[in-house]
Design a protein around this nucleic acid. Sequence first.
DNA 1: CCCGAACCGTACCGTACGGTACAAACACTT
DNA 2: AAGTGTTTGTACCGTACGGTACGGTTCGGG
Lengths: 214, 214
Amino acid sequence: MSMSARTIDPEFEDIAFTPRQEAVLEHALALLVGGGEKALTTAGLARTANCSKESLYKWFGDRDGLLAAVVAYQASKVHFPPESGATADAETFKAHLVAFATELLAVLFGETSLALNRLSIGQSNRDDSRLGRLLLVRGKHMISARARSLLEAGRHRGLIKFNDAEEAYQVLYGLAVRDVHIRLLLGDTPSDAERDLEAQARDAVDRFYRLFGA
Amino acid sequence: MSMSARTIDPEFEDIAFTPRQEAVLEHALALLVGGGEKALTTAGLARTANCSKESLYKWFGDRDGLLAAVVAYQASKVHFPPESGATADAETFKAHLVAFATELLAVLFGETSLALNRLSIGQSNRDDSRLGRLLLVRGKHMISARARSLLEAGRHRGLIKFNDAEEAYQVLYGLAVRDVHIRLLLGDTPSDAERDLEAQARDAVDRFYRLFGA
DNA sequence: CCCGAACCGTACCGTACGGTACAAACACTT
DNA sequence: AAGTGTTTGTACCGTACGGTACGGTTCGGG
């Protein structure tokens, strides 16, 4: 990921889909969520979205471009709210951490996120994992940046302490997600306790405080 | 094929592959690791393994059966050693935990495990995730059982304390794996620090002790 | 009202791949 | 040596799907 690398990666350009295209991408998303990658055929999408294959190829280039567009589009819809002003209170800061963790779990365990992760992972060791990169840079990195700024704020107010914000975030991630994400990706059904995202988030944040609390 | 003979999961039957079949499965594994699912075609496997497609279909039924056989075969090769006798020493117990975590990471982050996980995940929302179940029951559940017995031993000797062994194990898993597994599945390259599995395992176990130490 | 651009629907092509059929080669028993 | 089963190699079939071409239709601007 050095500075050169400007020659490729057409889907790094800012996405500006027309409403029509977004509607089509929404149909594509529905197909993906419903039946996995194989369910998303160009003919099938054209049929269910009432558009022509020719338009698909005009808009997205080829099938891979379509998949990339779907990933980019969905990622553009997920935006974690930036830190809500100055919350000096220790209590509310912890509540913010719990809220963040809860939303993280809600996103990760959502059917659309799972479907897109399955898609990207499935393609991820054939074609140099273009989709995987896209998902990472448009999804995980955004979330991680948001988390780091939140944690830094907490440290700045002396509520928690750590050396490396990224490391602290990863610990929080691990405490919250554990192996549930991979199990869901593999088709497992979560336990009742695992379905209570907020409780999971609270436990994770509690343990996080026991490791990084000031 | 047998008609309606079985209602449940044909690949749960005990696997007894002949040496010839194992050699073929080894080739299949190599293809999978090298190029993802698409690289594993029946014709391609027959060519590289010097066997006939007819034999493949005779042995494994169809392509899905072949994939299941690959998963089952590889899983059968990974066996975590059961707890090595009575290790009363607190020091060696912690070392055992570190060793376990290290081996866990080594397995999860290995190319073959990644390839198999990618394969299973890729198929995991089309066909009711047969492969995913297989991987879970033959892989994760085994490991988790091993971990639980190890943790129970530690608790029994008063070295650590917890209520639910499964929960404790999941925390240890989260601390050790964090988001590295999913990132690797997506084709990301690990950082230098993340490549030092033993150091990662030590950190994880240290934090685990701060949460569950007696 | 006309023109061109974008788009729809459908038909079509090429190919890759799962699965089957079959003849020749090998192996193993009697 | 003959018979029987298994494996190989190859050729073949059907189909699903990515990608293209094209005639017909809508729609906005002049």
